[in-house]
Amino acid sequence: MDINQSEVAQLKEYREKVYKKSFDAKLVIEFLRFLRITKLRSTRLVADLGSTLLSKYFSKITTENEVTNTFSVCVAYDIVEQVVLALLECNKAKEASEFIEDRLVKKFGEKSVRVSRLRAMQLECSNTFGKANDIYVGVLEKYPADQLTMKRQVSILKSKGQYQQAITMLNTYLQAFMIDPEAWLELAHLNIKLLSFKNAMFCYEELILAAPINYIYYVKYAELIYSIGGAENYIVALKYYTHSLELNNHTSQDNAIPPTNLTALYGIIMCIFSFCNTHGYGTTKLREPQIELYQWCQSELRAITAKYTPHKLSIVNAFIQHTDVLNK
């Protein structure tokens, strides 16, 4: 996804601040809030800072906010959820379960769907998938349209390594929730894992339809087409790589940021190279702009390497020479 540069800079700033000082509850709360809004991830930090925050300053969060804003008590529990998720990601199931039982179950009871989902995730983290799945099934009986729970079920199958089942499950999910890009992306990953590129292509087409100006999807799509192979497909892949460059080309941006779409440059070179090799005609079947583009990519690749990573120039040069179809 597109990352907002200013947000990243802010994240860095926060990190430095948090590391520098001794523990400052207010700063940590602010930091957590920032992460929740921007959806950036800094799991380890959240797990460490958050658990100290919750174990020592929890009463402070709830009381302090109650005065200023009536809705902030909910915020306190949002923090709990955030920290629990981070802890689970860091494989600290024990601490997480303490927070779940102490804070959340007491407050919201056994029946709350969100809490029971967290509980199940904690079970997943400690590798008891059967029990976790039971909880999810129970939730789905009550709320048959609960997206998050279904997704968790897929993830259980995935972490068990049962990719085929995961794909079937995800397919049934997508029959109903067919505009969920996250699910399409996941399905594409699973299909790639099982080497069924055609299906993965379908998923990426869906993603392109959903987010038509995200260059990454085009790059990935082109890679899939290239992987399937065949002379025609190489040209199609070439086109999609080019389009991704159209959407993200560093020359149109500020030069201070290193270019982020080198894959497309390499991809174009490889496409032409493979096309010429499979076809056997050499460059005769290529169109004029394609050759021009190919040359531009070579020079661009050299220039970028020379500018940002000069010590790798010899490798890149070797690559370019090896794939050179014009001067053979």
Binding site: T70, F71, V73, C74, Y77, D78, K107, F108, S112, V113, R114, Y143, A145, D146, Q147, L148
Partner: peptide, 17 residues
């Protein structure tokens, strides 16, 4: 009345459906 805190309104429902 707003001081009274309703857990159901947010934690329960917001992410559900």
């Amino acid at each position: 009345l707003a001081e009274k805190y309703q857990p159901n309104s947010t934690l329960y429902a917001s992410q559900l459906e």
